[in-house]
Nucleic acid binder design. Sequence first.
DNA 1: GTTGACCTTTGATTTAAGTCTAAGGTTTAT
DNA 2: ATAAACCTTAGACTTAAATCAAAGGTCAAC
Lengths: 139, 139
Amino acid sequence: MTLMKIGEVAKQFNVKADTLRFYEKNGLVGASGRSQSGYRLYNSDDIQRLSFIMRAKAVGFSLADIQDLLSIELDKSNWACADVKNMVDTKLSQIEAKLAELNRFRSSLKSLSDACCGGPDSAEYCSILEALESQNATE
Amino acid sequence: MTLMKIGEVAKQFNVKADTLRFYEKNGLVGASGRSQSGYRLYNSDDIQRLSFIMRAKAVGFSLADIQDLLSIELDKSNWACADVKNMVDTKLSQIEAKLAELNRFRSSLKSLSDACCGGPDSAEYCSILEALESQNATE
DNA sequence: GTTGACCTTTGATTTAAGTCTAAGGTTTAT
DNA sequence: ATAAACCTTAGACTTAAATCAAAGGTCAAC
C-alpha cells in the first residue's frame, strides 16, 4: 500500500493541497492516516475515492451531488437497494440529458467550424448564431 | 417581430429577470430596444442569442467562455476566419472530452444501477466505488 | 545547524453567478 | 382611480468552491 502526502496527491490530480483539505473538511474525502508528525497520508482507497470525485466534477456534478453518490458507499447498511437504484437512476437521467444537450451543441459548433474557411479572410461568414439558427430549423 | 418584456423572457427561459439584467450588465445579451417608459424590449435576435447562452451554459461553459464565443459575432470583421476556426475547435475539443468522460461516467452508473437489485436487500453490492472498481479493471 | 521545501491549523478573502432590497415609476384590471 | 402586478436603478447580500495568509512545526540536503 503506497501512502502519499498531500502535495503528491495534489500534483497527481492537478489541484491545490488547499482544495484537498477543503474536500476533507466537507466530508468528501480525507486521508485515512497520519504520519507521527501529523502529515496526512492518503492510501489507494483514498485515491480511488478522490478519482471518482474528480471524474464526477468534470462531468458537472456539484460537490453536494457527489456527496450524495458517495454516501451510498459510506452508509451501505442504511440504504435499501431500491433507494440506491432510485437515486442512481435520477443522476443517470441527468447525465443522459446533459449528454443529449452536449451532442446538440457539439454538432452546432461543428457545423460552424466546417462552414468557416479557416483562412485569412475575415470571419464574415462565421456566425455562431447563424449556425445555431440552421440547427434550430431542423429540430 | 414580436417584442417581449423582461418578465416574459425570464419565464420562457426559466430564469429570474435579475439574471437577465445581470447578463446585460456583463455584456452577454441585452434587450435591443426600450419602450417609451424604459422597459426592456427583447426582439427575436435577442432571444436567439439568449437561447445560445442558455444552451452553452447547460453544457458547462462559463459565462466568460460564452462571451468569447459571442464576441466573434459582435466583432466579425476584426476576426480572421482562421482565428475563429481555432477558437471554435478548441471549444469543440473541450466538448468532445466532456462527452467522453460523461459517457464513461454514464456506463459506470448504469452498471451500478443494473447490478443493484432494486429489491429489499441491503445495498451491500450497490457501492459506486465498487462498481467503478470493476469497471476500471476492464478498462 | 540552518536553509528551503514541505506540512499543520484557523480564519479571511476571492471569484463566479446569481439573488435580493429599497425606492420608486408604469400598466392592467376592476 | 386605485390595487396588483409589472418594470426601473443602484447597491448589498448569498452560495459554492476554492484560494490565500499568518504563524508555526517537520524534514532532507548541504
